[in-house]
Amino acid sequence: MEPGNDTQISRFLLLGLSNKPGLQLPIFGLFLFMYLITVFGNLLIILAVGSDSHLHTPMYFFLANLSFVDICFTSTTIPKMLVNIQTQSKFISYTGCISQICFSLLFAGWDDFLLAVMAYDRFVAICHPLHYMVIMNPRVCGLLVLVSWIISVLNSLLQSLMVLQLSFCSEVEIPHFFCELHQMIQLACSDTFLNDTIIYVSAVLLAGGPLTGILCSYSKIISSIHRISSAQGKYKAFSTCVSHLLVVSLFYCTVLGVYLSSAVTQSSHASAVASVMYMVITPMLNPFIYSLRNKDIKEALMRFFRRAVIKGTLCWW
Rank of each mutant, 00 (worst) to 15 (best):
M1Q: 02
P3L: 07
G4V: 12
N5E: 10
D6C: 07
T7I: 15
Q8T: 03
L13Q: 13
L14R: 08
G16W: 05
L17C: 10
N19V: 14
Q24N: 10
P26V: 07
I27A: 05
F33P: 00
I37S: 03
V39C: 12
N42L: 04
A48D: 11
A48C: 08
V49H: 06
S51I: 00
S53R: 15
M59G: 02
M59P: 00
F61Y: 12
S67Y: 00
V69W: 04
V69H: 05
C72E: 04
T77I: 15
P79S: 07
N84S: 12
N84Q: 10
I85C: 03
Q86T: 09
Q86W: 15
T87A: 15
S89C: 10
K90P: 00
Y94G: 02
C97T: 02
I98C: 08
F103Y: 12
L106Q: 10
F107E: 01
F107M: 06
F107I: 00
D111Y: 11
L130S: 09
H131N: 14
H131I: 00
Y132Q: 01
M133E: 10
I135E: 02
P138I: 06
V140F: 15
C141Y: 05
C141A: 13
G142F: 11
L143C: 14
V145G: 06
I150T: 13
I151F: 14
N155H: 11
S156Y: 01
L157I: 06
L157P: 00
L157E: 06
L158S: 02
Q159H: 12
L161M: 13
L161W: 11
M162L: 13
S167I: 01
F168W: 12
E173D: 04
F177C: 02
F193D: 06
D196S: 12
T197M: 14
S202H: 08
L206I: 09
S217V: 05
S223I: 05
S224K: 14
S224P: 03
I225D: 08
I228T: 13
S229P: 05
A231F: 14
Q232H: 14
Y235N: 14
Y235V: 13
A237M: 10
A237P: 10
C241Y: 10
H244I: 12
V255F: 14
L256A: 13
L256I: 04
Y259Q: 03
L260P: 02
S261T: 12
T265N: 02
T265C: 01
S267Q: 08
V273G: 01
V280Y: 08
M284P: 07
L285C: 15
N286W: 03
N286I: 15
P287D: 12
F288T: 06
S291G: 09
S291E: 04
L292A: 11
E299M: 11
L301F: 01
R303P: 00
R303Q: 07
R306T: 07
R307H: 00
A308D: 01
L314V: 12
W317C: 06
